[in-house]
Design a protein around this nucleic acid. Sequence first.
DNA 1: GGCCAGGTGTACC
DNA 2: GGTACACATGGC
Length: 302
Amino acid sequence: MTVRLPVTDYDLAATLGSGQVFRWHPRNGVWEGILGNQWFQLRQTHDGLEVEASGPVPDLQPLRQFLRIDEDLNAIRATFPKDPPMEAALSCCPGLRLLRQDPWECLASFILSSTKQIVQIQQCVTLLSERFGEPVSVPANCSPSFAFPTARRLATATEAELRGCKLGFRARYLGETARAVDANAVDLGAVGRLSTPRAREALVGLPGVGPKIADCVLLFAYGRQDAFPVDVWVLRALRCLYFPNRHPSARTLDRFTATHFGANAGYAQQYLFHYVRTHLGRQGLHSNAPRGVPSARRIRPT
DNA sequence: GGCCAGGTGTACC
DNA sequence: GGTACACATGGC
């Protein structure tokens, strides 16, 4: 079955390919992925998106929520600072959207992300799903697909099995966090009802989860647009584009990211991240490039 | 072969 | 409080 979702200003490729999600893949001009236990194929059209699904007509509400299709992107972009780097980022990918992911899948995926390239994260997540996820019904001409493994399933996987998915030292973190979530030591549903600083605190308590990964989950799964993940790319972007020829401390950068980018700072962050990765590259961000990640371990005040 | 990747945990000062 | 290093693996 095919359904049309009318929407303007939606850049599907930038959205699904900007390192927020790791299980959507381009194939012959369309994007294929799994949401829950449902296989979808998405195609960008001139006036929106075209959706193919396997099996009988599914409830499209989860897909609409995931894609955040009903959101007023212009209103969000209007809150971004009017400065040259931000203008450049905005013009490079006008229809980039944030997604709203399942908290567990997002958390588990980003635990794998530390010092890995996006392609490698995709590879790990695919292996995990193939080995520990439930099979999902797909159209006849498509390769087998699997749901993202539950916390319960990963909680019982051995560290050797997880390492077999090329997780390396992250295997222990994922196993321990899966057990914590399965045992409800951290209730991911309840986290969504906490204030952003409290939610961040709860997530940072999990093995392998520091401020950066917590902010990714807050932003990409819980829709907390005040969360501002700072990874090596964003750090380079901040230093090069906003503090050229200076050496801002971690504290200075913290204050800057908490105030300069407005109410939807996390959204702005995604534009910067995608812009510098796709248009500037490492070479384009040479100025006082960092030698490592920021040492800040900040919990922002409310 | 060396450097780097959507970092975190730990030891040490 | 900050700094340095280990931690797996693969692409370039």
